[in-house]
Amino acid sequence: MGCIGGDSPEENIYNVLEETVAKEEQYVEVQKPIQGLEKKEKEIYSEIMNLGMKEFDKIVKLSDDALKNISERTNYIEKERKAMKEAKETFSDLNGFITELDDKKLKDEAGKLEDTMKDRYKLHKELTDSYLDALSKDKKLYELFKNKELTMEEMEKQITSINEAYEKTIELNKEFNTSTEQYNNLKQGFYSTAGIEVE
């Protein structure tokens, strides 16, 4: 017989964790379109780099396509951030239920879970900040391509700056993925200790 007064802290924690996952679905959904746009932008960039200045009109047109692409990616990132913000708000309910746990081992596991997720959300913010910074540098490059007076030096300087921004983004992405993996392992561990069966 269940205790009177509703769910146990374990069940409440389970509900918060699963609701958080559901809120993050939107984050997962934008990954594919973003990757598609990244691929498209790489193609545009290669095409521009293969054109000579004699084909300036074509460069301008391609640059405009790339700028539209960057704007679309920015919108997707904003959607992603909104989804993660909502998930983070849902997740913040966890703490109240952790304090209700009697079992010390469970309490420790849930605490670790909470810390890992908090770090993960912090990392996600850093990651998207970094990605948006890289996009704004991309944008500047395509604006430069539309300038007939663009010097080789200006272009190379901007490309270096973009490469550095993306390197930082790639590093943060690795950290974020590692953090997600840790979180998922801790969550499975918690479920197992709490005797929660998950399909």
Score class of each variant (00 low, 15 high):
19 E>D: 03
140 K>G: 03
59 I>S: 14
1 M>K: 11
125 K>I: 15
19 E>V: 07
63 S>Y: 06
13 I>Q: 05
178 T>Q: 15
162 I>R: 04
64 D>H: 14
74 T>A: 10
161 S>W: 08
167 E>P: 10
68 K>E: 12
92 S>E: 05
102 D>E: 13
160 T>L: 10
2 G>Y: 00
85 K>Y: 13
7 D>W: 01
78 E>Q: 14
119 D>P: 03
149 E>K: 14
84 M>V: 08
159 I>C: 01
54 K>I: 15
33 P>M: 02
94 L>M: 14
142 Y>S: 06
160 T>M: 13
15 N>H: 10
173 N>R: 00
111 G>W: 01
5 G>D: 01
71 S>C: 05
2 G>A: 12
109 E>D: 14
140 K>L: 06
93 D>G: 13
79 K>H: 07
199 E>Q: 10
53 M>I: 14
96 G>V: 09
35 Q>N: 05
40 K>R: 10
118 K>C: 02
169 T>A: 09
180 T>H: 15
91 F>H: 07
199 E>C: 01
168 K>G: 12
133 D>N: 10
127 L>T: 15
124 H>I: 12
175 E>W: 02
103 D>G: 10
199 E>H: 09
181 E>G: 10
185 N>F: 11
97 F>H: 00
192 S>N: 14
55 E>A: 11
112 K>Q: 01
122 K>V: 05
170 I>L: 03
176 F>H: 13
114 E>A: 02
153 E>D: 10
162 I>N: 08
15 N>T: 07
167 E>Q: 05
35 Q>K: 12
36 G>E: 13
29 E>L: 13
80 E>L: 06
121 Y>F: 09
158 Q>V: 09
73 R>G: 00
59 I>Y: 15
76 Y>L: 04
119 D>Q: 08
79 K>T: 03
128 T>Q: 03
176 F>L: 12
105 K>I: 07
77 I>C: 02
26 Q>D: 04
98 I>R: 09
181 E>F: 07
25 E>A: 06
95 N>A: 12
90 T>G: 14
38 E>V: 02
153 E>Y: 08
186 L>E: 13
70 I>H: 00
185 N>V: 12
161 S>C: 02
52 G>C: 05
186 L>Y: 01
78 E>I: 15
63 S>P: 00
27 Y>L: 06
21 V>Y: 13
149 E>F: 13
71 S>R: 09
43 E>C: 04
196 I>S: 06
48 I>W: 03
23 K>N: 13
65 D>G: 01
151 T>N: 03
32 K>N: 06
88 K>S: 01
92 S>P: 03
35 Q>P: 05
24 E>H: 01
160 T>N: 09
126 E>G: 05
140 K>W: 11
51 L>S: 09
127 L>M: 10
11 E>S: 12
179 S>E: 11
183 Y>K: 13
57 D>M: 11
113 L>S: 00
78 E>A: 12
106 L>C: 15
103 D>Q: 07
153 E>G: 03
139 K>Q: 13
43 E>L: 01
188 Q>W: 00
187 K>L: 06
16 V>N: 10
87 A>Y: 00
51 L>M: 08
97 F>Y: 07
130 S>H: 13
6 G>N: 09
40 K>F: 07
57 D>A: 15
181 E>K: 15
31 Q>W: 04
49 M>I: 11
162 I>P: 04
53 M>L: 15
123 L>R: 07
164 E>Q: 03
17 L>A: 08
75 N>C: 06
140 K>I: 03
54 K>M: 12
64 D>Q: 13
188 Q>E: 14
127 L>N: 07
